[in-house]
Amino acid sequence: MVADARAVWATATVESVGTAAADVALVRLRSDHYGISAPAGSHLDVRLPLAHGDAVRSYSVVRSSSGRVDVAVRLAPASRGGSRAMHALSAGDTLVTTQPLQGFALGAAASSYVLVAGGIGVTAILPMARELVASGREVALLYAGTDRTRMPFLDELAELLGPRLDVRASSEGCRIDPVEPARLAAASTDPMRAEAYVCGPVPLLDDVRRAWSSAALPSTNLRFETFAGGSGSGGSFSVRVPALGVDAVVGPEETLLDALVREGVPVLYDCRRGECGLCVMSVDDVVGRVDHQDVFLSDAERAEGRTICTCVSRVSPSGGSSASASLALR
């Protein structure tokens, strides 16, 4: 129920690879250490051998039973990294993974539930919808994506939720207004006991969080998980650590933290998903703009611009053509 299980790494076999939506692969893995079934909110960590060394990626468990786990992976644009490796799998291949780990537990005490899925974040939300419907809870789901053909599990969710599923496809001109989750909670039978579970990109989450707190709803009733850390992709940029004589390029398929570790920078990390703050470094100088993808730094700390969570955040060009940062250990 809580992240109380130690990760155990073991070999898993790919049982099948299918398609959940355009560019979304559904990979079924089998391993003895997966157990009987994983609670909603669980994920697997997967070790992937990539060009520049092993990388770890996290994928939500979309379904599990008796030693089998399904994960759904969206192919990142122009990916040569994690998602490409996952899409290249075929039946019989082997991978090293953890057992299902819990990091986004569903509480049982809420009076009603608002689920919010942005893009591939639906993989964490789908098992929650299943469990909540099965136990007869009051639940509604806002599911946003670019286009219905690229949004997995629409059929299953429609069958589960009926009119309580609200699909927003930007190709149809529909988006989630960040105040909606707070509004739905406020309109429920017992707003102070309504909970929202959000899995999606960090900017959406940031906006939802601000709206939630201005609606004066209890902050602990807004639960969220981001998937920024899992992808490790974006544009490349350069990083310098003058104190250590490091000058390197962060490739599009790796995280800033990956690059720093590769260059031998003694940086600490733990969660690799922008939550714990151990990987934070000082920003001495930046060309371009820091894309904060973490949930550790506060709005005020971000505005100051002096720190960066290296496991998830990146630097992107603003205006000019290059992006770079000069960092220092804290």
Binding site: F224, C271, G277, V295, F296
Partner: peptide, 8 residues
């Protein structure tokens, strides 16, 4: 000693 709370 931090401004936010780890959601996990």
């Amino acid at each position: 000693a931090q401004e936010t709370v780890n959601p996990s």
